[in-house]
Amino acid sequence: MSQDQRSALVGFLLIVPAVAHLAYFSMYPVLRSLFLSFHDWNLSGTPEYIGLGNYIRLFNDVDFGRSVQVTLTFSLGVSATLFLVSLTMALLFDRRFPLRDFFRAIYFVPVVVPWVVAAIVWNLIYNPTYGLMNPLTDALHLGQVLWIQNPRLVGISLIIVSVWKGFGYYMVIFLAGLQAIPPEYYEAAQVDGANRRQLLWHITLPLLRPSMLLVAVSAVTDSFQIFTPVWLMTRGGPAGASRMLTIFVYENAFVYLKMGYATAIAALMLVTLVVFTRLQITLWQTDY
């Protein structure tokens, strides 16, 4: 065996554990899930092959349609708000001012708070009797607001929680993008007489485009898969107004024991997310 062959063999052996781990814990569940989506299976016994039966049923299921609508609305709301808030905060924190690092850390704290803790805290904040929002709603003469008990408000309330939890993370991505812009560009533009708005519009935002795309696609992907806070705060209610696709999958799989049907929904979600991921890769590879 030549030196090169030995080296290749060692390299191969070194990656075997990682590949095996990935294959067993990531690829196998995905493939198994796809396999089950063509079967009728209630968790016990042998799955029964039904072809496209689960997928055909999905398109006639009113509850599935509502869940898609709820998920898309939530995902769009969270992504757009996260994008604007985190970009604005990053632009503010890119400037020098007293206690800047302290405030950066403070705004990042929600990112490291576990979702379970955040959901419990926000449940109390939204409590219509004792909640911390009450003084605010009283001051605005809004009366008693049922933040998560009103089907018309629950989506907005969950968007607020998700933005609070996530904007620190995306702010850091934007900050990294801002700090990667060479200062010479600004200096050259200022020499040419550009004002602050022109600097923002013609230098900062165009050069921040890769970060923007990353944030946009990541935010959509993350919000599409949200489960924990929704389950803990609303259980998909009231009246199905927050029954995201993840909740719908969970209920079908583990409450109604319709594992085949649940995996068909999960497969459709996977396809959607793969499209977004592909979009992300394509856009990253675009030469700006």
Binding site: Q149, P151, E251, Y256
Partner: peptide, 22 residues
């Protein structure tokens, strides 16, 4: 055996009623 699916639908109906959205 379909109790939990039925329970969900009754629950949603009651929520539509008690929140007066329907």
């Amino acid at each position: 055996a379909k109790y939990f699916e039925i329970e969900e639908q009754v629950g949603q109906a009651l929520e539509r009623i008690t929140t007066q959205t329907s």
